[in-house]
Design a binder for these strands. Sequence first.
DNA 1: CGAGTGGTTGAAATCCGTCAAGAATAGTGG
DNA 2: CCACTATTCTTGACGGATTTCAACCACTCG
Lengths: 241, 241
Amino acid sequence: MRPAVKSGVRPSDINGIAYNRHLLSNRPHPLENLDALAAIVSFHRGQEICSEGQSLEHWYFLISGAARRCAIRSDGRRQIVDLMLPGDFFGLLFGDQSGATIEAVQENTVVASYPRPRIEILAESDPKIARELRQIAFTALSRMQTQLLILGRITASEKVGSFILEMAARLSEGESDQIALPVSRYDIADYLGISVETVSRALSDLKQRGAIRLSGTRTVSIIHRDLLEEGERDGRASGRC
Amino acid sequence: MRPAVKSGVRPSDINGIAYNRHLLSNRPHPLENLDALAAIVSFHRGQEICSEGQSLEHWYFLISGAARRCAIRSDGRRQIVDLMLPGDFFGLLFGDQSGATIEAVQENTVVASYPRPRIEILAESDPKIARELRQIAFTALSRMQTQLLILGRITASEKVGSFILEMAARLSEGESDQIALPVSRYDIADYLGISVETVSRALSDLKQRGAIRLSGTRTVSIIHRDLLEEGERDGRASGRC
DNA sequence: CGAGTGGTTGAAATCCGTCAAGAATAGTGG
DNA sequence: CCACTATTCTTGACGGATTTCAACCACTCG
């Protein structure tokens, strides 16, 4: 809606193809006043967007595609700690312990890259920018809390069911009941902390119970939200307070 | 070290016993310049510090004791999403979905309570306060990411082992190898998403393997850190990238 | 003393991870 | 466009780990 920003900085193409700036200005977002500082970069499937080395250099805004924040554990297993979709901000944290990297999930994942030190300096003088940075941090906190609640569930069907509901909520604001999963079964598995086979079985299970419908492997239609939330077991209190 | 702050506001005792202000000023922390605004309140074991209703009213700084952020799921199970120890800041997030509450874990848990709207306003004019608020959010993010990594582990022994290491790191900066667990087995179970019995068994297991020593039920001595980090299985790569 | 809480341990059923094989899909090069 | 290959996805079988149900012990508090 807003006219394309006239850039004072040329688009960089450090890691990928430089894109025209108007890609960014189509949607409103917290840092839109800083669009002039942003470099629009595109990434291939599986390509690394940033890793521990450049922890503190940039903030990112995901324009299209999807990205995952990965951690590799000592036993070699990969864990996906966060999943970023269009409209999400991200960046590595400072105290990044476990060799975390952020990678593009889909081909042609486009991000806006903001120079971090520059923004920090601007935040010192502009309270509005400072507030927006805070907002970004709170949104990330909320995302991780949701993720914690999903991981805390017991059965695999519950985890997968919650995952589908989360994706539905984040992908389409309009509460659409048909969603295109942005990630593979392997990614879902590493995101939920279960094995690929279990993910597949849980999806088949949910389908058979009439909770969802699968059109192709990546398209899910939600039939009964209740069945996704609750899992199969009857609700009875157990937790001690 | 710093002399006690002369307060312009009298200590309130909304929910508990009002404490003398010098409790707060003993240790340096991000919001120490706002100590004059803080009310020092003490809570009983299990008492609610705040719930969804007063989401946006306060920020808290934990002075002594421990607190847990709980979510109750539809099936009645409790999940502990975050654990706050002395020196931690906390407060409910805005979009608090799942009936979250924050409760004191120990008897005589003391917190400093800062009026949230007031601080927000101050942050608008004082960039230093704004930066400190950001710092608080990033610390919370880091805490939750650690928690995600723990929950993503596979075996119960690994989860409990990581939990002990995290507690050791957070409770004593001095890398002491003897720690006093601030929470019950039930809390550990709900924090790690496993059953109480499994927690108990994992602790016995770790003890038997010589990783820890238990003096009383709540005091843990770390003997071999390696055994706690790795769990029992041999390290072999499997995750697909 | 008895009740209640917190902790530990045992036995059975269930769920999930692993190994294995096959089916479907996408990607590549001719 | 088709064949070929690699990847992704699904399903089966088996063994191990965890949940559940149960009993028991230690400790505290009235």
